[in-house]
């Protein structure tokens, strides 16, 4: 096994996903198959190869430090399910 049910439950929790027992088993089995398939990559000889972080070779894509107009507040809040005044409103988070 490449991944355990506990690991799946842990990752689900981190992603704020809720699975029942059946789903957890199903996803564990599916993820296991995927990871086994990924194992194939280990067959490739990567001796002397620098690890890649990106699929394209481009580097240094920059913009200049110039201010552009922001969204009007009404638009900025238009996707908010429960705005209050000029704010997004969310359930209270206790520190």
């Amino acid at each position: 096994m490449k991944i355990t049910k506990d690991e799946v439950a842990h990752v689900a929790h981190l992603a704020r996903l809720e699975f029942d027992v059946e789903e957890t088993e199903k996803f564990t089995s599916q993820l296991n198959d995927i990871l086994l398939y990924m194992e194939k990559l280990n067959e490739a000889d990567t001796t002397g190869m620098e690890p890649m972080t990106h699929a394209i070779a481009q580097k240094n894509a920059f913009r200049e430090d110039a201010v552009l107009p922001s969204l009007p507040i009404r638009e900025a809040l238009s996707n908010a399910p429960d705005p209050k005044g000029e704010f997004f409103r969310v359930p209270k988070v206790i520190e």
Binding site: K84, F87, R89, V90, P91, K92, V93
Partner: peptide
């Protein structure tokens, strides 16, 4: 954080 209601406001 709202002192009276169970809400927080995001900027």
């Amino acid at each position: 954080h709202d002192e009276h209601n169970p809400s927080s406001y995001v900027d």
